[in-house]
Computed example of a mutant assay.
Amino acid sequence: MEILGLTLPLLVLFVSFGFMVGVLFGFFGMGGSFLITPTLLILDYPASVAIGSGLAFYFGTSVIAVIKHYDVGQVDYKLGAVLFVVLSIGIELGSRLVFGLEALGIAELVTGIAYIVLLAGIGLLFLRRAYNLTDDDDDEADEDADDDIPPIGQKIQSYNVPPMISLTSGGRASLWTISGAGGGVGLISGLIGVGGGFIRMPAIHYLIGTPLTAAVGTSLFAGLFSGAFGTFTYGMSGSVDLAVVSMLLIGSALGAKIGSAATTMVEENDVIVYFGMMMLFASAGIALSELADWIGMGGLEMLSVLLLVGSSFFVALMILYQVAQTVSTDGSPTQTAPEGGD
């Protein structure tokens, strides 16, 4: 039995996976395509289809996040517009590179290796942040760290390399810095099929030098349009599976609402650890998939799917569990969790 060209097990998988990714998206502010694309690759979708569908899913989920941040004034529209242009150029170059790699027959290998390195690196950074968070709490008790520009951002802003652009959040940034940061993120987005929020937001915060809250909103604003452009680029070549994207978005719509509500109920320290673990498990899952293709072991392929999909389910379930636990005890929010880009 097939619905929209999908078997019933795949339909259930995509809707439930979309729900869990939606919970993560609502909580962390990330589109989730960094999980969608490698999952589709493991399920033997062509690299271009996996990447195009991942970008399409990111575009759909980003609409909700942009509206949320627009309402609270956390978007630098001028910076976002410039980033959109350079991100689009980077995505176009990245997509052309993917099609070239497909012609050589190595697109899946290159994309898989890129994912392994990126996800493992980000996972380790999150775990390191969780390890240092307790020590940082004492130093930051009297200041709002989210509104600070990091030292590296201040240093980069101190170099006056025309043309300079005034930032809504304060300060000025060189167009060359913005172009380099945005173009590099766009290239990675087009190459591996992610919205790029988990690298775009840190780039805006640390390299361009904006406060974290403005970096999150501006990242999502720029990602909305770059995601639309990436979807269009891959869609024109028939590389977006609308059935898969639709099922993912159906599940994500409900999950995102629950995840957004959870930000006031879940302790930050625990979730940072869970998220770092999820990244590492996802990286290990993709590595096992690549190894399975190389040595031809089907068992490793199944284990890779369990690690990749199961890690996101685990973190989302932990968020839902802590929400349920908070509501059952006193129903009061405990701490607002941070949002990021995805």
Rank of each mutant, 00 (worst) to 15 (best):
A215T: 02
L83H: 11
E140T: 11
L8W: 13
K78S: 10
V185C: 14
L303W: 11
T168N: 14
S311K: 03
L127H: 03
F275C: 08
I188D: 02
T213M: 08
L11K: 07
F126N: 02
D293G: 15
L40A: 05
P9M: 05
A261N: 15
G180F: 07
L97C: 12
N160P: 11
L119W: 02
S158W: 08
M247G: 06
M279W: 15
I106L: 09
F14A: 07
R96H: 12
G100D: 07
L133I: 14
D241H: 09
E267C: 10
M297E: 15
L6C: 09
G341V: 07
T37E: 00
G186I: 04
G223D: 01
Y115C: 05
S33H: 04
S158N: 11
V66I: 06
S289C: 11
I156S: 06
S237H: 13
L127E: 02
A282T: 08
G32C: 02
I122M: 04
V244N: 00
M20E: 03
G341E: 11
A261W: 15
P333G: 13
S304H: 03
D135N: 15
I67M: 11
V75I: 14
F84Q: 03
G29K: 00
V240C: 01
G298L: 11
F221M: 07
I192P: 04
L101P: 06
I208K: 04
A130S: 12
W294V: 14
A292C: 06
W294D: 12
M265F: 12
V110C: 10
D330S: 12
A103F: 13
G52N: 06
L280F: 10
L133R: 12
V271Y: 06
L4I: 14
V194R: 03
S169C: 05
P151N: 10
M278W: 04
L303T: 15
G29C: 01
V315A: 14
L288Y: 01
M30W: 01
I272D: 03
V117S: 05
L13A: 13
I3Q: 05
A173D: 02
Q322W: 09
M277G: 14
E2C: 10
A107H: 02
L8E: 13
I286P: 07
V194K: 01
F34M: 09
L83K: 09
G209V: 05
P38S: 11
F198Y: 09
G331V: 12
L175N: 07
L93G: 09
L97G: 10
L254F: 15
L167Y: 02
F126I: 08
F17V: 10
I152W: 05
T168F: 14
I36A: 03
I89Q: 07
V49W: 00
F232P: 05
L307R: 02
Q335G: 11
F229V: 14
G197A: 04
V98S: 04
